[in-house]
Nucleic acid binder design. Structure first.
Lengths: 201, 201, 201, 201
DNA sequence: CATGAATGAGACTTCATTCAT
DNA sequence: TATGAATGAAGTCTCATTCAT
């Protein structure tokens, strides 16, 4: 059995991470047991500890993996030659598409990390703020160019923008059925429209 | 021994609830122990079970007490003869003043209930939605009157408004020093201005 | 049921300590489980942790309790007007009588603490040495008085004396039947005779 | 590939045993993990199980290897034409030189086997007693020859002799710096002098 | 009302051992 | 021989909850 013969050789570490996403999403980080993750992944209990030193580290890993991708996406949007409104649209679209692609993962990140002021939020505060600051920088530049008005600070604008995106995701997370394709697409425009009308001159 | 006879008689139930707010805010609901609450309240921890049937019930009580006050405040704002913008201002002001008055309590409600999609959020979903719906009703009526444009659904508008308020509170919760008086006042106007520009014709 | 009616009201903490002695003696500290102690004591598992913060703390407590009694006994022997030989006899007698009274406890102290160079011995080294030093002081004074010869340092003499006592106890500990009354009494004399012949002029 | 063909071929079994000595000495048998031994030896830890069936077997092997050498040394001393005092000196010298050559190994044997009445001591009791008995035989013969007095049984004398040697080693084991060359040499004489004055007529 | 000793289920984590490669 | 991923039993410790006083 050569490596080339089994290109799909399972990476158990990945299997565990993916299972953890489903379990955290379903039961919550504090409420689930490590054995739930192992069961969901179809591996022995101890293997979880072979790859991760604790339950916390699994969540940390999930958050950091995804958040870095998001920071890269924001950077990319910012680097483009688009208008501020288009940049914000790209960011909202990226986050919403992330949710479309893996709603459980986004749920975990928002519910267990981004809003968990006591534990993980505290730990990853700096990382979380990086996103806010990148968005604020886009706004600041738009203000300097005269596209956005100056009455609202870039920090506040960033808060409003990201807060709305997260609130929309949260509403989908809470909904039993989740959101339909159409709703996802429409939301992108609505979010940007709502915020930018508040920001543009 | 009636309550009126001993005005200085401490209401131990209240003492426990207030202590729970501080402990939940500091350590988080899942991370704290019932004995932490008892210690903070200065009572034996058997007494906690004299007044509450479980740790959960304490959080439920705190949430429901406060949320009912907020629903009443929204109703009152809605019942006034003010403009839609003024109504939303009144609501934002009420929530921010609640935070000013007891930041720990608002932190607990937002972090442990409002955003906890797995446990308490699920339990209190209907109650939480009542607030969204009342706000949406204000928007809907403003649209019917022609003050707000119809491109954005009242539900989305409500989400955007409440989401921004909560995001602003969250940013204060995460900040080490919290927010100053001035910042609190300014935020009220900024929130309403940002959202209403997006909603008004 | 008044307090005077039940003078024998059980001190559960004591019950746990006594049970721990039997379990440690039978199975060894590392080999036994906390549940074995709880079972032996006839109490619930959690009560062990109500009184002690860890399995280690139980052993620490047992050792310190007993060792302090022994240090006091050595001091008392030293303070008497007896000859050096009589002082050493009193000490040997005390230790051997301790063994007679509670062989399990002495076994635990010797096997798990006094000779465990890696863990507990390391922790309680200072305390253990206090005993050696008190015995050495007796020897030193006997040398100064001219009763003992000076070729052997007090430190070495102390080692030899205490080492012989411990070795004798160890041999009883290892023996299936333990030692008879007569053997215990005879040992006191033999130990002192053997060591003092080596020390006296 | 024979052993003689590759003189530099490392005997991995030996490497593992030597590593185990260091690890047992440093952390203790119960406190160390098999992987610690493998790491110290620089091999994968599956290999440990290729050579030994369990962690216990490693300690058993170390003890038996060394103890057999010691029994042989005692036999040799006994077989010589020396005086009883010289025989005991030879034995003390052998044990102390063993410590000089490999203090970790002696520490492991004393702390983990010889004094561990519950586990390994119990297992190897017969083997341990062989040494005591050989020494007792030397004493008995000296008594028969009239060199040693008969008040003290050979068994007790053997206990006293071996106990003192072990106590001296133990004191070095506990000491931070260990013992200097000079101290090692001097101890041989002191031990024999102390014990033999107690035994000789 | 008030106390805090007592209970015991349950969680996390460790680690000796196996086994496929 | 050699590797280290995989297994899962077992142990420590926590803590919500009960209850006798």
């Amino acid at each position: 059995m050569t490596a080339s013969a089994t290109t799909a050789a399972v990476d158990k570490r990945r299997v565990i991470l993916d299972a953890a996403v489903r379990v955290f999403a379903r039961q919550g980080f504090h409420t689930c047991r490590v054995s739930d993750i192992a069961d969901e992944a179809g591996v022995a209990y101890g293997l979880v500890y072979h790859y991760f030193s604790s339950k916390e580290e699994i969540l940390d890993t999930l958050f950091l993996e995804r958040w870095d991708v998001m920071l890269a996406a924001i950077s990319e949007a910012d680097a483009s030659r688009s208008s501020p409104r288009e940049k914000l649209y790209a960011i909202a679209a990226f986050i919403i598409d992330s949710y479309r692609h893996d709603p459980d993962l986004m749920k975990v990140i928002i519910v267990e990390v981004t809003r968990a002021a006591n534990t993980f939020g505290r730990t990853h505060l700096a990382k979380i703020r990086e996103a806010y600051e990148q968005i604020a920088a886009i706004v600041a530049r738009a203000q300097a160019e005269g596209t956005f008005r100056r009455e609202i600070t870039p920090q506040f604008a960033s808060l409003a923008f990201y807060g709305l995106v997260e609130q929309v995701l949260t509403s989908w997370i809470f909904e039993a059925g989740g959101a339909g394709e159409e709703e996802l697409e429409r939301a992108k425009g609505l979010i940007v429209e709502t915020i930018c009308r508040g920001l543009e001159r």
